[in-house]
């Protein structure tokens, strides 16, 4: 027989939450503002994720795209499978289940007083935005802030009103590019690495936060190596199949790391012994 167990809280049991706002962002992405029915705040840190449940259908890990400094929380959900498709079909007022927040998130305190460069590709903007808005809400605590954003095409841009405001701020250097240009677009055209030279701060002394599709990491990390950014100052946000969220089910495991616990944000220098990471 085995002695004392401590907490008997069910780690697999979702908490009820309600969709307060829903907005179509792009042909694949939908925006949600969610509040827990308990009226408590989620209490997340920038860069963490939640498991979103649709009763009877399934559960999917979704990054929290809002800063902990605001009430409720936001999710940007790409329709990429049966669960996310079901989420897309939900309307304002619908009930969903939430487990989490899980994961480690961004080193919010460590980066205070530092120059920060965000490099976002596509849907990678969503998790990064949780920290971007945290930084902007606490702007005096951080030094230079620069945001590079690469999106496939004009129609795929999201949080457009907000990024327009970032672009207008004098205390942020915001640079945006599209992989493929079009008539409506007057800005930069090219993949996100082509706008890295537009960073104003000395990259070799900056802290760089990268989030985007797998292919993007390869090239961005090459550019950052050329710019002599120390690996200790680079943080990557990795996508894995976080199924249970509590380091047990094995789906998100890459080498000895359970991404749902030790990630999804990793210091690049700590991935030297994790060949499956990138």
């Amino acid at each position: 027989m085995c002695e004392g167990s401590g907490s008997q809280k069910d780690i697999y049991l979702p908490e009820l939450a309600t969709i307060r706002k829903k907005q179509k962002f792009t042909r694949l992405e939908m925006y949600y503002h969610v509040e827990l029915d308990s009226e408590k705040e989620l209490g997340h840190k920038a860069g963490q994720f939640v498991e979103v449940s649709i009763a009877g259908i399934g559960e999917a890990p979704i990054s929290i795209s809002s800063s902990p400094t605001q009430t409720g929380f936001e999710l940007v959900v790409r329709n990429a499978g049966s669960v996310t498709n079901a989420i897309h079909n939900l309307d304002t007022g619908a009930k969903i289940g939430i487990r989490g927040p899980f994961g480690k998130g961004y080193p919010v305190d460590e980066l205070k007083g530092k120059n920060i460069v965000f490099i976002c590709g596509g849907l990678g903007l969503a998790p990064q935005r949780s920290f971007i808005n945290y930084v902007l809400d606490n702007r005096d605590q951080y030094d230079d802030v620069e945001i590079l954003l690469g999106t496939k095409c004009f129609e795929d841009r999201f949080y457009v009103d907000e990024i327009t405001k970032w672009a207008q701020r004098s205390d942020v250097n915001f640079v945006e590019t599209l992989d493929v240009g079009c008539d409506q677009w007057k800005g930069n055209v090219g993949v996100v690495t082509t706008i890295i030279p537009k960073v104003k701060t000395d990259l070799s002394k900056a802290h760089v936060l990268v989030c985007g599709p797998p292919i993007m990491y390869k090239f961005v990390l090459m550019s950052l190596a050329e710019a002599k950014v120390p690996k200790e100052n680079i943080f990557v946000n990795l996508e894995r199949r976080m199924k249970c969220g509590v380091g047990k089910c094995g789906h998100c495991q890459m080498n000895n790391q359970y991404v749902c616990q030790s990630g999804p944000v990793y210091r690049f220098s700590e991935l030297g012994h994790v060949p499956e990471a990138i």
Binding site: Y12, I54, C244, K248, C249, G250
Partner: peptide, 23 residues
Amino acid sequence: HCFYLFDTQRENAFGKMKVWDSC
């Protein structure tokens, strides 16, 4: 001990099942 969590429904109750999975 890898497992898969999947959702199920019976009348008005919803459940999460833990099922053995394999890497």
